[in-house]
Design a binder for these strands. Structure first.
Lengths: 210, 210, 210, 210
DNA sequence: TATGAATGAGAATTCATTCAT
DNA sequence: AATGAATGAATTCTCATTCAT
């Protein structure tokens, strides 16, 4: 079940400011509180009423973005019928997100960091897992559950491999999109098809042999 | 052809210092010149005789690491005969690198950044491409070239997809290794087999149909 | 004559909050309005209805404390008959005050400061002198007046010296009390006797020769 | 024995800057690092090469002042022959110090604080006690030792009382000097005589009865 | 009258870089 | 060539005070 989180207006303003600055190409590590609050149109001190420090602002901003993205993704995926359509939906959503910004990727990058921001993100993830928020993993799992249906559940190793394999293919599709060539829809459609089929085949393989 | 780059001793000392600090868990953005030169055992001013600034030191350090890694990989891959053995060699090299540190991943993360470091890295990549240095891509391409042999070359799109698909599988294997479960060899051997077979099948598929 | 000053409840709450925080070891310069009003249980804005700023709050709080202390002292001293008993009363009152907190000393310290708080205190002292409030000086003078009785008044210089000499002895007793050794009554009683006798002898000397 | 402490030039510059600003009436709590280093004529960052923070700068500056003062005092006292001359020397030194600034008093005030500066001062005192530096106490004790000579040592309580009693009289003399009346030497000479005699009598009393 | 959210001036501190030795 | 003391721009964060409710 998706929780209906309410965000306070100033909190939201900070998130949006961070994401905007980010989309405009700012480097996270050079993001200053002054820039963020300036963009958000609020006083510097006000930010500290809502956050304990800069790192929390940034981490939560990306988390907010990820949450919004995954929630939409989840809802969209549920409406599609076939595995191929579901995967396609995800890849298209990825495209939209990518052209706007690389936010989702950054979230992943940041998680692998040793920076204070990454610490915050990991903590947020743990915390939210207990509440009913939709993480990226849940989206993929949902797709797989639908597909598994009556069939026998594969071994844990295979499921883990499958999850990551799909995850990495989507990720790899996102990386391809950075290439100038794929700025045009007619070029993207070809590669999207390849990736989609690649994922479907992998699912069938694992689920088929189990 | 692999160029025989010579590194000056102080330059090397800087690289090693950066990598050491990194392996010890330092956050890149909190690496200071003082810490780096202190670890390298040279004066702060001296570093500026070899580098234009902190960003260059860090970027080149990771580049140095990547180069060393890929060079070894390339040499190792050349010695193996079958596709499966080659892929296995890469995955094992990945494991070794992973346990030491996530340096290769970090390199990737940093490339996706908007930070000054990432700017340096992208520039270095361009520059080196013109010289004959071995990038990660070259390793994969070498494996594929061997395999392609007499067969017909697939379309550019398919090759691009294949490259990234392999890349993503290796990447995905690296990510799995972070999991506590895979700290033990007997656990790793199972998943390594799955990844290896996944890659080989994908290669066969693309090369088979072309 | 002791004026019957009435304090408004919120005003009093502020004073008590300041003194409480102080007794708990807070540093005056790190006392924030937020902490004070928080402790007082009133809104931050409300404090500004009663005081012009933080400095006034603190200065008046200590002034309030000093006034209460001196008033009690004055009343107590009046009830005693001999010089020795009066001095003893003062020293015992000092002890009680000391164990609770060093507030009286702090008041003295603050007066010697160049801080805004000290400015306020000096101003308050002037102001109150015109009204009939009991200052520490008045207590000592009262003791001396009783003792002087019919005898001839010594020169102004001598009176001034005597006042300060007594003052310094009491002060010195207070300082001694900080010593761990004097946490026990049986230790204190010895030193208290010495101080008492020192003061009495000094009074006799000055008053005797005049 | 007086240790010959060497101070580095920048360190000294900071001390002098703090003391100068202080003599000019600055409030300790409003002393900023910018003001101090500005006055000292060095860069803000440089101060942090020598001190861990603002508090250390201020505490050590006053400590430096106290040390210099006490060292001179000690040397001067040693040259005098009679108790009266020695005490007179101390009182005159006090006067000189007072007209310049109240630094010694401030040091005392600061010690009684709960501020970080006071913490530093207390720590410095402990530390220096182990090294052979001359504290205020040593000066008084030296005077008493000379006087005690062959006579029997009084009880610990009495010695403690005597030390503090003298200390407080000197302190009280310093306080008197703040009075406008005593800005003139002819006025001071009277009161100085009274204080001097008061101290001598007290010493004789304690040493006589032991 | 009472409040506390909002503010921004101001403070401490860090650290990349320079440059005299 | 090598150094590290000196620097000050830049950054984070605090907190007294205001003012709309």
């Amino acid at each position: 079940m998706i929780t209906n989180c309410e965000y306070q207006p100033k909190e939201r303003a900070i998130y949006q400011a961070v994401l905007e600055l980010f989309e405009e190409g700012a480097d996270i590590n050079n993001l200053t509180v002054a820039k963020i609050t300036g963009r958000a149109g609020i006083g510097k001190g006000t930010a500290y009423e809502y956050f304990s420090g800069k790192e929390e602002m940034i981490a939560k901003a990306f988390f907010y973005n990820g949450e919004m993205f995954c929630r939409q993704l989840y809802e969209g995926v549920c409406k599609e019928q076939t595995l191929g359509d579901k995967v396609n939906y995800v890849l298209l959503a990825m495209e939209r997100q990518m052209t706007k910004t690389n936010c989702v990727f950054r979230l992943i990058h940041m998680m692998a960091d040793n920076s204070p921001v990454s610490g915050w993100i990991r903590e947020l993830l743990k915390e939210k897992k207990e509440v009913g928020v939709v993480p990226a993993e849940a989206v993929i799992r949902r797709v797989l559950d639908d597909e598994l249906d009556g069939r026998e559940m594969p071994s844990e190793d295979k499921m883990k491999y499958l999850m990551l394999s799909i995850y990495s293919k989507i990720f790899c599709y996102g990386m391809l999109l950075n290439d100038d060539k794929y700025q045009q829809e007619d070029q993207r459609v070809v590669i999207r098809g390849l990736v989609n089929r690649g994922i479907c085949r992998e699912v069938e393989e694992i689920f088929g042999l189990s």
